[in-house]
Design a protein around this nucleic acid. Structure first.
Length: 880
RNA sequence: GCGAGGGUGGCCGAGUCCGGACAAAGGCGGCGGACUUAAGAUCCGCUCCUGUAGAGGUCCGUGGGUUCGAAUCCCUCCCCUCGCACCA
């Protein structure tokens, strides 16, 4: 009967309805500063997968925990509803992206409800609704007005067959084929809108240091992505081509330069190709920027080294990239691995100009470059300077040289030639050029979807036709839409005031409520989404009065749910559907299994066995509560020592689980709760229970479980006859501190193990009586003295205490033991606490050995036995 | 190549920040026992080696070092995962 579990579907539905009726997860607008807990909103694919379930269970559990701790909590949810998949689905199914998307949202919302996630749905945000994307357009206007957005040429992937632009991810294989039709993709120059994130590059990289609530991995990835390099720009004179700047981070090595190299697409290279067939040939045939081999061709030109006045041979080389530095560099084979390889290949001189230190020999660089900083040699007047000093000095001395910082980060191209996104609010006028749509005319809404090849907006003639806001002449609308990362760069601000008609968000409230206290999502967003959001936040701080310059205080990148060590994926066919698990075991089981399987940031393996054991646990808990309520568990008026044990274990559970919840290490917290339930079940089996103690244990267990398994907790809370929702219950409190708890548990556990070991080693199969004798107070005192003392002669110092000295020879011997282990001594529990803890735990030994167990104070036991006791280690005497 | 994070008992996994009670939590698997007609579920133990009173030995990727003492601190090397990468 119980073994079959319980009707989870009925229980879960009932409580979901009750929460909804009670508006249990509303966050009123007038709360001062709620704890903002946020999971990255999903793309509404229509199916929640395990990654979603894990992500949202983490935020839900944390939000519930904080709420029970008395915080106001903001825990909203929304939809990243624009994007290409809806467009493709619409084309395939002959429907519209809008219908398709809203259908998917409905389905996913049902699935979320079935999981019991407690969201404030009144704050739901859906990016494909005009009332949301109007503010994308409004923000775009603001960016343009503040000179943070610009229209310029950019190279894009173009499929001539589909007549559309493709994202990099949609170009497949090395041959660069269109993912839909297999046509080779071309490169096209198109006018695109860019948001100038590079304006904020310095702050974005520097502020990473302050993001202490973020994982190191994500911080490092953002640093890499921004790729700030500090160096110098130096002009080289190329005969016939004037001055060409080279960028370098190692200006100290310039005396060792033996060649100069240009990127294949550098303007000078292209000009050379026009007159030099060999260069032309190289550019179009040999150059292989993707390959590992550094290829290059000698041009016959020379470049004048501005420091040494030497003439260096000029190459066009494919390892020089036009978008790195200036697209031109000087090569120092002695101090750079790649330059070294190139010099060997081209038979160029290799001249060392940096030695490891002032006294060292000049390094042998014939076989390998010396790439470390050091002290300059063979560098004229600069010889003897450190690399660092030389870089500064040379930059100052060389005509036309200057310090410069370069970045890998590029401006953010947001134009997408697609339908299902936010229309860029621009009108193209023959006379006025691109003109912003006035604020009063926003939003520019999407027209009806037309199923065509290419961009449907290009075909929407009626929609396209408009007039110029500036001159009134006939004009055409911009047909590009925005990258959906624009939508997600500020959605967390919209939750604060989702219905506001005057602005994207209520600034005052945002200043009170932001930043997000705990943000949770997948590592795949480590760079783009999280970097763009930081960028937006900073712009909004500068332009709109937002008080915080970082949006997310604490970030958790959750791990993957795997199957047999492999990522779950449709293409591998190793997917476990959350819906199937929910219908078979229930949402609580799925949530419990996931949260106890591993720390949230770690990957873990889905395991059927684990799911079953989570379910079995919930069933046992339910049975226990029900049996208790049904009066099937005998009760006793005299609490006794077992009750003491249960009582202190209940406190211990609270003391350990609470900080673990705070740290989001649910796995550890849940293990504690499972142990507590185990203890309660042992209690009822061993003795008639004290109702107060037993009920407190149950109520603590239920409350500690409520964040993770809210439905069953609610059900049993009700069964226990408690008032109100467990969701709103107060988090249990305790006086117990973790350190004492752990010492006590260790004492009990070590003592039990010792009894087992003794009876085993001594061959006592069936002990009749077990005496546990607590260490006499004077030994505790002696230990305490030893801990505090720094005297050389510990025994002498101990003997100065009358209480200790009284024990003569024994005390001296113990003193010698203490002396020997002096460095390893640790603070013990006091004798009374030891006695109480062991007394309370005696029943465990009684039950295990079926013997009389006496826990004695030292004064009540024979001296020869007492002698074996030490603090933290009672004497044990077993009689057969 | 650079950067980050890891390598713990049959497996998974805590401990590593702040060295000591660590043969090292917990789970799984395996073994034995209780309950049961039986199975399942549940409960109690055992699960590196040796040991007739709580002991000893070996052990936390490799090799070294620091220390009275190292899974924990420092260095070498090997391997795994992720990110960046012909980046000037």
């Amino acid at each position: 009967m119980h073994d079959d579990g319980y009707d989870h579907t009925e229980v879960e539905r009932r409580w979901q309805a009750a929460w909804e009726d009670a508006d249990a997860y509303r966050t009123p607008d007038d709360v001062a500063d709620p704890t903002y807990v946020l999971g990255m909103y999903p793309y509404p694919s229509g199916e929640m997968h395990m990654g979603h379930v894990r992500n949202y269970t983490i935020t839900d559990a944390y939000a519930r925990f904080r709420r029970m701790q008395g915080d106001d909590v903001l825990h909203p949810m929304g939809w990243d509803a624009f994007g290409l998949p809806a467009e493709n689905a619409a084309k395939e199914r002959d429907t519209s992206p809008r219908e398709w998307t809203f259908d998917c949202i409905d389905r996913m919302k049902d699935q979320m409800d079935a999981m019991g996630f407690g969201y404030d749905w009144d704050r739901e945000v859906t990016t494909c609704r005009p009332r949301y994307y109007k503010w994308n357009q409004w923000l775009f206007r603001r960016f343009v007005e503040e000179d943070l957005a610009e229209r310029r040429d950019a190279a894009v992937n173009w499929c001539p067959s589909c007549e559309t632009v493709l994202a990099d991810e949609q170009v497949e294989e090395d041959e660069e084929l269109c993912w839909r039709c297999g046509t080779p993709v071309e490169e096209r120059e198109l006018e695109q809108w860019f948001l100038e994130i590079t304006e904020y590059a310095d702050e974005l990289v520097e502020a990473i240091d302050e993001l202490e609530g973020w994982p190191d991995s994500v911080r490092q990835m953002q640093r890499n992505w921004i790729g700030r390099q500090e160096g110098s720009r130096v002009p080289f004179t190329l005969e016939g081509h004037g001055e060409i700047d080279a960028f370098t981070t190692r200006l100290d090595t310039i005396h060792g330069a033996t060649f100069f190299a240009l990127a294949p697409d550098h303007p000078v290279s292209e000009r050379l190709a026009e007159e030099d067939d060999a260069v032309h040939e190289f550019l179009h045939q040999e150059a292989d920027p993707e390959g590992d081999e550094p290829n290059g061709i000698r041009t016959g030109l020379t470049a004048e080294n501005p420091v040494t006045d030497e003439e260096l041979p000029v190459f066009v080389a494919d390892f020089v990239l036009s978008d790195v530095g200036t697209g031109a560099l000087y090569g120092v084979p002695a101090h750079d691995d790649r330059d070294h390889a190139f010099a060997e290949k081209m038979d160029l001189p290799i001249r060392p100009v940096v030695a490891p230190d002032a006294d060292a020999e000049v390094p042998d660089v014939d076989r390998e470059a010396y790439t470390e900083d050091g002290v300059l040699v063979n560098s004229g007047e600069y010889s003897g300077l450190t690399s660092e000093a030389a870089r500064t000095q040379l930059t100052e001395d060389v005509d036309g040289a200057a310090f410069e910082t370069v970045y890998r980060l590029r401006d953010w191209g947001i134009s997408r030639q697609r339908y299902w996104g936010t229309p860029i609010p621009v009108v193209h006028c023959d006379d006025c050029g691109p003109v912003l749509v006035p604020e009063a005319d926003l939003p520019v809404e999407l027209p009806e979807f037309i199923n065509v090849t290419g961009n449907p907006l290009d075909e929407a003639d009626e929609w396209k036709a408009t007039t110029c806001p500036d001159c009134g002449a006939d004009a055409e609308r911009e047909t590009d839409t925005m990258d959906t990362f624009v939508d997600s760069s500020w959605y967390f601000l919209r939750y604060v005031s989702p219905d506001l008609d005057e602005a994207p968000f209520d600034v005052d409230r945002a200043n009170d409520w932001l930043p997000v206290d705990q943000y949770v999502g997948g590592i795949e967003h480590a760079v783009m989404h999280l970097l763009y959001s930081r960028f937006f936040q900073k712009v909004l701080a500068d332009q709109e009065g937002l008080a915080h310059r970082e949006p997310f205080e604490n970030l958790l990148a959750q791990g993957m749910v795997q199957l047999e060590g492999e990522k779950m994926s449709k293409s591998r066919g190793n997917v476990v559907s959350p819906q199937a698990i929910v219908s078979e075991y229930g949402a609580d089981t799925a949530r419990l299994f996931m949260m106890q399987a591993a720390q949230p940031e770690r990957d873990f393996d889905w395991s059927e066995e684990g799911v079953r054991s989570a379910h079995a646990f919930l069933t046992r808990l339910k049975t226990t509560v029900e049996d208790y309520r049904a009066g099937e568990i005998p009760r006793a008026d005299d609490p006794g020592t077992v009750a003491d044990y249960v009582e202190s274990e209940t406190d211990a559970t609270v003391a350990v689980a609470t900080p673990e919840y705070d740290d989001l290490t649910f796995n550890t917290a849940l293990r504690e709760v499972q142990d507590l339930v185990g203890t309660l079940r042992q209690y009822r089996e061993h003795a008639a229970v004290d109702p107060e103690v037993f009920e407190r244990g149950l109520s603590v267990a239920l409350r500690l479980l409520a964040p993770v398994t809210p439905h069953i907790a609610e059900e049993l809370w009700d069964e226990l006859g408690r008032e109100g929702f467990v969701v709103d219950a107060d988090w249990p409190e305790t006086e117990a501190d973790r350190e004492t708890v752990e010492k006590r548990r260790r004492l009990v556990e070590n003592t039990r193990e010792d009894v087992r070991e003794i009876s085993d080693v001594a061959g006592i199969d069936d002990p009749e009586r077990i005496d546990i004798v607590v260490t006499p107070a004077w030994k505790h005192e002696a230990l305490r003295v030893a801990l505090e003392s720094d005297a050389n002669n510990l025994v002498g110092e101990l003997m100065a205490h009358d209480d200790i000295k009284r024990h003569g020879e024994t005390a001296a011997d113990y003193g010698k033991d203490l002396q020997a282990e002096r460095e390893a001594l640790t603070e013990p529990l006091d004798p009374e606490t030891e006695h109480a803890a062991l007394r309370a735990a005696a029943w465990l030994l009684e039950r295990e050995f079926d013997a009389d167990v006496r826990v004695l104070r030292a004064v009540d036991a024979p001296e020869d036995i007492v002698a074996r006791a030490e603090p933290g280690r009672p004497a044990i005497d077993i009689a057969e």
